[in-house]
Simulated scan of single mutants.
Amino acid sequence: MANELNISEVSPILLQHIKKWRLYRETDRDANYTIELAAVYHFRSIIFTFKDVSAVTIRDLETL
């Protein structure tokens, strides 16, 4: 069973637009992945990089 990590005094941010995202495996032997997410936040383009990702849960997805 997976545990969720809660960090005090940190609130979720609302990304205005996700430009692109990419999920790829770090090595051929391990099941660790990296997610790169390019998004717009307060009218600025930013890139998030999540390393050593072992699980991802998508709870909701909307498209136009």
Results as ranks from 00 to 15, higher is better:
residue 28 D to L: 02
residue 2 A to Y: 09
residue 34 T to A: 04
residue 43 F to I: 09
residue 15 L to E: 08
residue 30 D to A: 08
residue 54 S to F: 00
residue 31 A to F: 08
residue 52 D to S: 03
residue 9 E to I: 08
residue 3 N to M: 11
residue 38 A to T: 04
residue 17 H to Y: 15
residue 14 L to C: 11
residue 18 I to H: 04
residue 43 F to W: 05
residue 12 P to Y: 07
residue 40 V to E: 15
residue 21 W to K: 03
residue 26 E to A: 02
residue 60 D to P: 00
residue 53 V to C: 01
residue 2 A to K: 08
residue 51 K to S: 06
residue 63 T to R: 10
residue 45 S to Q: 11
residue 64 L to V: 09
residue 4 E to W: 09
residue 8 S to D: 13
residue 53 V to Q: 00
residue 20 K to E: 13
residue 19 K to D: 13
residue 59 R to P: 02
residue 28 D to I: 00
residue 23 L to F: 08
residue 35 I to G: 00
residue 64 L to M: 07
residue 55 A to Y: 01
residue 13 I to G: 08
residue 56 V to S: 03
residue 36 E to T: 03
residue 18 I to V: 12
residue 26 E to K: 08
residue 27 T to G: 00
residue 64 L to W: 05
residue 27 T to E: 02
residue 8 S to H: 10
residue 33 Y to W: 05
residue 61 L to A: 15
residue 9 E to R: 12
residue 5 L to E: 09
residue 44 R to M: 08
residue 19 K to S: 07
residue 8 S to G: 06
residue 26 E to M: 09
residue 58 I to D: 05
residue 46 I to T: 15
residue 20 K to A: 06
residue 19 K to P: 03
residue 37 L to C: 13
residue 28 D to A: 05
residue 49 T to H: 02
residue 26 E to Y: 00
residue 31 A to D: 10
residue 49 T to P: 04
residue 19 K to W: 05
residue 55 A to T: 04
residue 53 V to T: 00
residue 44 R to F: 11
residue 45 S to V: 11
residue 37 L to N: 05
residue 60 D to W: 07
residue 61 L to R: 07
residue 16 Q to T: 15
residue 59 R to N: 14
residue 13 I to S: 13
residue 5 L to C: 07
residue 64 L to I: 05
residue 52 D to W: 03
residue 48 F to V: 10
residue 41 Y to F: 15
residue 1 M to F: 06
residue 56 V to Y: 03
residue 40 V to Q: 13
residue 28 D to R: 04
residue 16 Q to E: 15
residue 9 E to G: 07
residue 34 T to K: 00
residue 13 I to V: 15
residue 50 F to K: 01
residue 49 T to A: 06
residue 3 N to E: 13
